[in-house]
Amino acid sequence: MAVIKIAIYQKNLHKRFTPDEITKVQQSKAQFLLLPEGFPHFFQSGSPKEATKHEKEYQDHLLEISEKFSGVILGGSHYRVNENGKLVSALPIVQSLVLVDFYEKKTPNKQQEMEVQEGSTESIFIMGGLRFGLLLGEDLHNKIIWEEFQKEGIEIIFHLDTTTDLRTYEEDLSFYEALAKEKKIHLIRVCGSSEGKPARSLYASPSGINWKVGKVEEDKDVFKTLSVNVMRSYLL
């Protein structure tokens, strides 16, 4: 059994990391840093296509964090045109000042991402001594991805999300608790606050809810370092 340290930052999508916040992340000594779907979003854009103009600025801010934090940075997400010419919502994966890879969202939001196409990258990665699955937003409800996770025996899944109004705070907890128990997985969700929308980051495992932000923290920046026990590690 191995213990993996995972830092999550429930962050306002429109505010950059300050030097003090980057130092806080650095001092956590975590192997992973999870950032919410839609972070960083410093430039107001009228459409996903228009937002692609700011791809480099988004990535540069993640590289700025990577100057001090040596672990794997997952997220948040931004729009880009991939190598196949498709407009996708992409989750950048950064480590040691290198943009290593992208995870592309497989289930674009039908109301907000009409022009965005389905991504085609893998959903399972091995980095930082860990084999893990990635979900971005609505990918949580994608049965094909879940079938792949189950087939491959994935123990830990990172869900970079945007909270919706479909469920109450209590319903969200019950939903994730039941999902983690059903799938027998560690499921870590990180959200960001934006324009009055709540953020409900949490960690659910087969034993229940291990950690959650409180109701009074739904509109706040919250930094938390989690220690997760996994049966298998991959020392690369």
Rank of each mutant, 00 (worst) to 15 (best):
R189F: 01
L136H: 02
A51Q: 14
Y103Q: 01
Q31V: 03
G133Y: 04
L33E: 06
E155Y: 07
L63R: 07
I144P: 00
E104W: 05
W211E: 08
F17I: 03
G208P: 09
L97W: 00
V88Y: 07
V100A: 12
Q10L: 06
S96V: 01
F223S: 11
E113Y: 04
I73F: 02
N84P: 00
V228Q: 08
H54L: 08
L33Y: 01
E57K: 13
F132D: 10
G75E: 04
H159F: 00
L35N: 03
K15P: 00
W211P: 06
K197Y: 13
G128F: 02
E182S: 15
V88A: 05
S174E: 15
T225M: 08
H14Y: 10
K86I: 02
S77C: 02
L74I: 15
L160D: 02
H61A: 05
N82M: 08
D219R: 14
F42I: 10
H186E: 14
L140T: 05
Q117I: 04
A2H: 12
D165E: 09
K29F: 03
K184P: 00
K29R: 14
K105C: 07
L160H: 03
L63Q: 10
S77W: 03
I154A: 05
D101Q: 03
I157A: 07
L91T: 15
R200M: 10
K183C: 04
S193V: 09
L160S: 07
I93R: 02
K181F: 02
H186G: 07
L226E: 09
Y79W: 12
S123Q: 11
G196T: 11
Y176M: 08
T121E: 11
M114T: 13
K110D: 12
L166W: 07
L87Q: 03
G153M: 03
E83N: 13
F43V: 14
E83C: 00
S123L: 03
L179V: 06
G76A: 07
E148T: 14
V213C: 08
D172H: 11
K110A: 14
T107L: 12
A30P: 03
D172P: 01
H159P: 04
I145M: 12
